[in-house]
Design a protein around this nucleic acid. Structure first.
Lengths: 349, 349
DNA sequence: TTGTATGCGTTATCAC
DNA sequence: GTGATAACGCATACAA
């Protein structure tokens, strides 16, 4: 039975030094004689003192070393897309040197434990894919006066954004198709809003799109093909792409499908092949992201490469800068067009 | 320019109540008159007080409301497998009612910021897939006197384990194949250790397997097919399965491949089809996990269903119990055999 | 139902 | 290089 966890005061007494000195031994914030240093460490070993209590330290320092990452969907949804996990890795890498770790926060309200976002000891927050439902989270965090970075979302005034040149990039893919001679293209879009309903978009629904990425990529396509139709999938995964592409191809056979993610594109390729169409001979398909699609095999998608890890890293760097009292600039990363083997000249009908 | 963030004392003064009353208004731990309550809230609004400082609260309470989840690989690796993300969701759900959130911790040492595991304000830790390299993390956490739960790993004495009946379950799949008449089966295994090298296992390498899941499932197979060979893949993803299955089938054509995960099984199916083999006519394939493999399409794997979300939930419940001072029992979840359409009688050579 | 008093364990600041 | 002191902001036991 332990009587009580030893504190740094106990340790200091046992080592015959002052608490401040003991503290310095652990923080390394000031020079200490090697002699006292080892004396303190020896005492710590003997007492079973494992270092300063992080809770007390964070109160005193005013820092917890924790960065909150807020998602607006279940984690399985958030992490199904390799883009997100790459981004998370980049983010984790970028904040690690600051000694920070990532706290996973789900935006969903109505959690029985209450809104953890308001009570979590975070130094900063990263909102991922800031869509409508996240506005509330944004307000909470801002009210708390916590530095915020938004990745791929419409943050509003004064909120630091890390984004992609979604519209311009998607436009490039569209131009590629146009240059190949395509005129009849359909967009296979990401969800329009948090409801994630599948279906053809309408002017009304498009006006109400709350997910920036979806809106911007659609706009990029329309820059080149103003009257192209779009079908929204239920999410960014292969089977959603298969499903959506089946619907698209059932109605009418365009010569190209412009998918808003590589996973959706992979689904489109599969759906086309199911129907006996060859890609790219009968149907060109473009993706977006430039990730390795597990299970796609040898095929190389024509796509827009986004450096997802770099996006996370940029967010992490921005967070670090804000915590250091600096005022980092927004970042817009540029996608690189990569021609693969899934696009070609349109079939001659 | 804000002079200083208001504290609960400022709030109390502004509202004309005592700090304790103000505290109660936010914690709800004791009854308060509606009048004072709204008075306090109004004052909070006016002052811009957004609630108690979590850092101070956690020091005072001795709780941070944070559960650390420790992985021994990059997040992209950890989350590539749907089993993990399901587990994380289950875990998040289970701890949410306690008001807890999950802190992502990577086991990797040598992180520039230092070992965050030793300095993170966590109330409890969950180690995922506790393999050799994680022993150090386990020790750190135990030294800190923090409750630990290990998921699918060899934790050693006195550490609460949440596991699966891996061996028995895998044995069931093997029996299924045996009953169908198979005698020539090969295992497509998960990695043997953190190095994740692909290749045939040897008696020496098998003796040195540090990943429990791999070892136990292999043992389950050997219970039925004592001399079956095994080929370790580089990870649990489809392309690793394709790659490994190609190697397996290049050497020799067994009548069945027993994969240690559904993703690997999906890869095996694909590799077989590439080679012109039909599944299950020419080759039976079994998986493990029972997850939805994105992109597998209509095919239903013969597999062992593990309730991954439930596994996470069990871990979360165990954590909650330990934090409540109780002493939960280890959990061994049972997999359910599910016959799909990827197994059948062996081909007659 | 509300107020008073105390300490949670640490670290920044300043002397020495 | 080391020690004394004073907060950090809050939640609880207890008294009223």
């Amino acid at each position: 039975m332990t009587p009580r966890k030893p504190t740094i005061t106990d340790l200091a007494r046992a080592a015959g030094v002052s608490p401040s000195t003991a503290s310095i031994v652990f923080s390394g914030k000031a020079p200490v004689t090697e002699a006292t240093r080892s004396r303190v460490l020896a005492a710590a070993e003997k007492l079973g003192y494992t270092g300063p209590d992080p809770r007390a330290a964070s109160l005193r320092r005013g820092r917890s070393g924790i960065v909150g990452v807020v998602f607006d969907e279940p984690l399985r949804g958030a992490f199904a897309d390799p883009v997100q996990t790459l981004m998370m890795d980049g983010l984790a890498d970028a904040v690690a040197p600051e000694g920070a770790a990532l706290l996973l926060l789900r935006d969903g309200v109505g959690a029985p434990g209450g809104p953890t976002l308001t009570t979590a000891p975070i130094d900063a927050a990263v909102l991922v894919g800031c869509s409508g439902s996240m506005r509330a989270s944004l307000e909470v965090v801002q009210a708390r006066g916590i530095p915020v970075v938004v990745i791929e979302g419409d943050a509003g005034e004064g909120v630091l954004r890390i984004g992609l040149d979604n519209r311009a990039a998607q436009r490039r893919a569209a131009e590629h198709l146009r240059d190949l001679g395509h005129t009849d293209v359909v967009m296979l879009a990401l969800p329009q809003d948090a409801r994630r309903e599948a279906g053809w978009t309408t002017p009304e629904s498009e006006a109400a799109i709350t997910i920036d990425v979806t809106r911007d990529r659609l706009a990029g396509l329309r820059d080149v093909f103003p009257s192209a139709r779009a079908y929204a999938a239920t999410g960014s995964f292969i089977d959603a792409g298969v499903e959506a592409a089946r619907q698209i191809l059932a109605a009418h056979r365009p010569t190209a499908i412009v998918a808003q993610s590589d996973l959706l594109a992979a689904g489109a390729v599969r759906a086309a092949e199911e129907l006996g169409m060859r890609v790219p001979e009968d149907l060109s398909v473009t993706g977006f992201d430039g990730v390795v699609v597990d299970g796609l095999g040898e095929r190389r998608l024509t796509t827009l490469e986004q450096l997802a890890a770099q996006k996370g890293r940029a967010a992490g760097d921005a967070v670090a800068a804000m915590l250091a009292g600096r005022d980092p600039a927004p970042v817009e990363l540029t996608c690189r067009f990569r021609r693969g083997d899934t696009t070609g000249p349109p079939r001659a009908d």
